[in-house]
Structures are given as structure tokens and as C-alpha cells.
Amino acid sequence: MTDETVTTDESVSTESEITPEIDPDPASASDLESDQPSAATTSTDRNGTTESAGFNTTESSVGEAIIEARDINVWYDDVQALTDITMDIPEQGVTAMIGPSGCGKSTFLRCINRMNDLIDAARVDGDLSLAGKNVYDSDVDPVALRRRVGMVFQKPNPFPKSIYDNVAYGLKIQDVDGDHDEIVENALRKAALWDEVSGRLDESGLELSGGQQQRLCIARAIAPDPEVLLMDEPASALDPVATSQIEDLIDSLAEEYTVVIVTHNMQQAARISDKTAVFLTGGELVEFDDTQKIFENPDNQRVEDYITGKFG
């Protein structure tokens, strides 16, 4: 990590959208034109070794499918945001979703924990199972579902409460048994924030820097021990140093959780993910395969064009 090359094409978004989540296209302002495939294949690995060409070559460790999507269609009023998405997201490891703005990758992420239910205009059609149970069955309580799926948003959004109360929020509302102090400490340790905040847990979460706030949000999401962790461009509002910290963190979280991450940044997807899904305009899932395959030898011409920067 220390000699991590911070490439200038890190998509550092400084947009300050207040409600990125309501927007079906949350990161329309992020720029993509500088993403180059050569950078992906030649950039230095986070461990300082280059033999893996920047890839996390752990596809063999990928487990059973935990999320199975079948023919998911989503409309916002009359606009179709997702078209017939079918994919199996494996248990544990990191699954990345990349694609141009407005291609529906965030929308798909929000289908998994039914956050789209909160948008009046959104309509979801199709089956999506989490651990074998279709989450769109009529007997599924979306609130109970969200308690098993953690979510981290694009813009750090800690509550205006103390650091401790932020992390303990899920424990409090879900009435989790056990020693909350210990759970909070563990979550902060896993989020690599403990050393920075251990002495000032009663300070406001808003007093932390942007990268610390995002790690606080990750700690908050993992404190109730969810099965799946959804991340909607978690690093796009952060500077390169904070971004690399978040990436390290995702790497270590993948040992324990199923991480599904939406990103605009192709190098990021290449660095941290085991599987990559490429969404293209019109809400189509064009290709979904092992990350290495997608970036080195994609089947689909449009995916290759997108990754090599010919379009997108």
C-alpha cells in the first residue's frame, strides 16, 4: 500500500449532490474519458508486486451464488432503467459492476436490498433471490431484508451523532444482543478506523475527514454483521489516498462478506474485484465474468470498446 501508484485517472468526483441515491443515475457528473485499459494492466499492484498485472487473481476462491437475479426489469415511470438482468453473484469475494453513467448499475444494486421501494416512481419486475429466497416475494419485509444487507453510499453520510452512536445505530434499531462496546470496537477495527478514533468515540462523526467518514459508514454497515455488503461508488467522492485506504479495506472485508461494489473507475474494479459485470447504456448487462477475463479478453466487442475507451 505504501508504494501504491496513485494514477491520475482516479475518478475523483467533487460533486456534492445531496440526494444521489434518489437519482437513477447517481454519478452522472463523474468523468470517465480518462479511463484507459493500458493503465489497468500496467499499474502497480497494491502489494508492490506486478506479476499479477494489477488483478486480484482469486477467482478460484469464489463460492456458491448467494444472489441470483433472474430477468430483472426496472422502470422509473416510463423509462426502463434495467432490461432483463440475469446474473449470479457468488458468496464472498468482491463483485464489481462497471459501466457508463445512467446504465443502471446503481439501480441494480438498490434492487438487492429493495431500496428502490423508497422511490415512488420505481417499478421492479423479475426474481432476485438472496440466499435462496426471492426478496420480491410478497411475504418479504423489506426492512427485515435490509437488516441482512449492509449498504455504503457514494457520499459519506454519517449521522450527526457521536462516532460511537453512528456505529451502534444498527445495533440499536435492530435490538442486537451482546456487548455493544465490543461490537462497535470490532466494527471500527475491521473498518481500519479504530486506531484513529479510539480516544474520541464521543465526538461527532461529522468532525472526521471525508475518507474517515466513509470508513465510519462502512463500520456502521458491518456492525450488525450483514451477509452482503453493497457499496455504491464508495470512493468516488474521496481523494486518492482515502480511495486506496477504502480499497484495502474492501479487500480485507471480502474475506468475510460478500461485497458488491458499483464503480466508475475501471482500475478500481480491476484491482479489487473477483468478478466484474459490465452494464452498458440502456440498462443491459452485457458481460459478466471473472475480472481478469473481462479486462484481458472480453467476449463482447462493445465491452472491449468500452474498456479500451473507444466509447463510454
Binding site: I22, L118, R147, A221
Partner: peptide, 27 residues
């Protein structure tokens, strides 16, 4: 109250009542 706070609360599995009580009203 920023909508991102409500989203964060719902994303944690809070009910509407919990979100109002713990996030919206204090803020």
C-alpha cells in the same frame, strides 16, 4: 434534513418510525 441521512437509516434496516425518531427529528 438531507435525504442522504434518511437513506443511510433505511439502508441500515430502520423502519420509517425509527428513522423519524432517531434521525429526522433530532436533526
Amino acid at each position: 434534513v438531507p435525504d442522504s441521512l434518511r437513506q443511510a437509516s433505511f439502508g441500515m434496516g430502520a423502519t420509517q418510525w425509527q428513522t423519524i425518531k432517531n434521525v429526522v427529528l433530532p436533526r
